[in-house]
Amino acid sequence: MSGPPPRTLLKVCGATTRGDIEAAATAGADCVGLWHGVPGGPRELDADTLGDLASAARSAGLLPALVTFLAEAEALTELARRTGVGWIQLHAYQSPTAVRALRASLAPEVAIVKVLHLAQGGAGCVERPLIGAYERAGTDLFLIDAATGDGRIGSTGQALDPADVLALLPRMTRPFLLAGGLGPTSPARYADVVRAPGFHGIDVDTAARSPLTGRFGVPEITALARAWRGDPSGGPARAHPPADLEPSR
């Protein structure tokens, strides 16, 4: 990182159509998450659709991020080369060894995002003892998200306790994104997290969607952008994620 982003980065997750891409771009998102290798996931894409939507995202000025439970470096590297994704978001319990192998095989301009799963009710983060190892292995960015009591991870819609998030930060030297039930009314609740060193942006699924269609909605994403950036004008100007992150070597 060369410094803090000019404003909060907004990643919307789970695009499945070109219409989703267009809505995200129109409303001012920076990055769009595309699911592949998420068994049983409601927004799972095959490799061809992943590539098509990644191309559409780049053309619209968005950074496409592969969101996956996969861990095998060779398969993920081939996907990155084939589809042109700019981030690989490891959204499961991949090991630091898997991250190291992936970093060694990926092109340097592709960033690795490792999700840290913070359980609700003060149960802690299972990856907490491994944060340093993830950083040494080549993680570029962390994403702090909720894990539910019944073991669900990813797009749970469950909010995190800000105190639990803040307790995790002293172990981290990489920038981080915040996820977990975030919406336009959330910034005040997470004001201390937003002010913390390393805060880079947010990752949203449910609140980015129209309640009528379940698709990404321009009004919904615009409301997120305005609320989290403190910018009443909203609009499509972006924080340009590729320039903000320099993948680890």
Rank of each mutant, 00 (worst) to 15 (best):
42 P>L: 00
38 V>F: 13
50 L>P: 04
13 C>S: 14
13 C>D: 08
63 L>A: 15
23 A>N: 07
7 R>G: 15
34 L>G: 12
40 G>P: 14
56 A>M: 08
56 A>Q: 04
17 T>I: 04
47 A>T: 11
33 G>W: 03
54 A>H: 00
40 G>R: 00
34 L>Y: 07
45 L>D: 04
63 L>N: 03
25 A>L: 01
60 A>W: 06
49 T>C: 13
59 S>F: 09
52 D>R: 11
4 P>T: 07
44 E>D: 11
26 T>N: 00
45 L>G: 08
45 L>R: 01
31 C>W: 09
56 A>K: 01
29 A>K: 00
20 D>N: 11
54 A>Y: 01
15 A>M: 13
31 C>E: 05
57 A>T: 09
56 A>C: 12
28 G>D: 05
48 D>G: 13
55 S>E: 14
48 D>Q: 13
23 A>H: 08
24 A>M: 06
7 R>T: 13
16 T>L: 07
43 R>L: 12
3 G>I: 02
60 A>F: 13
19 G>N: 10
49 T>M: 10
10 L>M: 13
28 G>W: 03
6 P>F: 13
36 H>W: 13
31 C>T: 07
2 S>Y: 12
5 P>D: 08
4 P>R: 02
21 I>D: 07
8 T>K: 05
32 V>D: 02
29 A>N: 08
34 L>V: 09
34 L>P: 12
61 G>R: 01
8 T>C: 15
39 P>S: 12
25 A>F: 11
41 G>K: 00
56 A>G: 06
10 L>N: 05
63 L>M: 14
19 G>L: 03
51 G>V: 02
6 P>N: 10
5 P>M: 06
22 E>V: 09
27 A>H: 08
55 S>R: 14
46 D>V: 02
9 L>Y: 07
55 S>H: 15
15 A>W: 02
64 P>M: 04
6 P>I: 06
6 P>D: 09
41 G>A: 08
4 P>G: 11
19 G>S: 11
37 G>R: 01
27 A>W: 09
38 V>D: 06
46 D>Y: 11
56 A>W: 04
50 L>R: 02
6 P>W: 08
38 V>Y: 08
42 P>A: 07
27 A>L: 04
18 R>Y: 07
42 P>I: 00
38 V>N: 11
53 L>N: 03
39 P>A: 14
10 L>C: 14
38 V>T: 14
12 V>Y: 05
27 A>F: 12
48 D>K: 09
63 L>K: 00
28 G>N: 01
47 A>I: 09
50 L>I: 04
16 T>G: 15
61 G>Q: 02
59 S>A: 15
3 G>E: 13
12 V>M: 12
48 D>P: 01
27 A>D: 06
38 V>C: 15
5 P>W: 09
64 P>R: 00
55 S>L: 13
34 L>H: 05
57 A>S: 15
61 G>D: 11
48 D>C: 11
2 S>D: 14
15 A>R: 02
37 G>Q: 02
23 A>F: 12
36 H>M: 10
43 R>S: 14
45 L>K: 03
29 A>P: 13
50 L>M: 07
19 G>C: 04
52 D>H: 10
52 D>K: 03
64 P>C: 08
32 V>W: 05
30 D>P: 10
54 A>E: 03
39 P>M: 00
28 G>T: 00
6 P>K: 03
46 D>M: 04
25 A>Y: 07
4 P>Y: 12
54 A>V: 11
